[in-house]
Amino acid sequence: MNIKQMIIVGMADLNACKSPGVLTTLGLGSCVGIALYDPLSKVAGLAHCMLPDSTKIQNNNVEAKFVDTAVAKLLMQMQKMGANKRMIKAKVAGGAQMFAFNATNDMMRIGDRNVEATTKVLGQHGIPILAKDVGLTYGRTVELYAETGAFLIKTIGHGNKTL
């Protein structure tokens, strides 16, 4: 697929598309990439979140920045495009710890906390997580194909895989 046909989802950003669209986010680090997909209507959605919880931060008007508000907004956007919430399944990537040695520092554990929040929030919405490629210490570029729901994960030096 030509890169020009891909919809790029930036940091603190989200987007949805219908088949045969492709959503991508480049270089997920400690941020978490949440891929949602309804196989029946072939509507796909991708969010690139930076922080776990909007209620813990005063400055919280950018919905896509936080896992909780991003999932709610993305679901709404997908439903408007014809997705059925009960059919939607999730795949999750990212949440790495880019700088490895300071694991005790809370600031450094943000990747883990983003993934924990994602699991919790998707659970609250009743959305099952089909697959995860999270944690560890390297960046990931992801592509979500609305035609098949395939979630491609590319890394530098740690291989590529499809969830």
């Binding site: 940091m11 603190a12 480049l26 270089g27 997920l28 680090g29 400690s30 941020c31 930076m50 922080l51 931060i57 400055n59 920045k65 790495a96 880019m98 700088f99 490895a100 600031m107 943000i110 210490t137 390297y138 960046g139 990931r140 570029t141 530098i156």
Partner: peptide, 18 residues
Amino acid sequence: AIDMAAAILSVPAIEFSK
């Protein structure tokens, strides 16, 4: 760390995002 620019930049960006 040696990795993708965006992934490395996510660390300071997240700190700022608070």
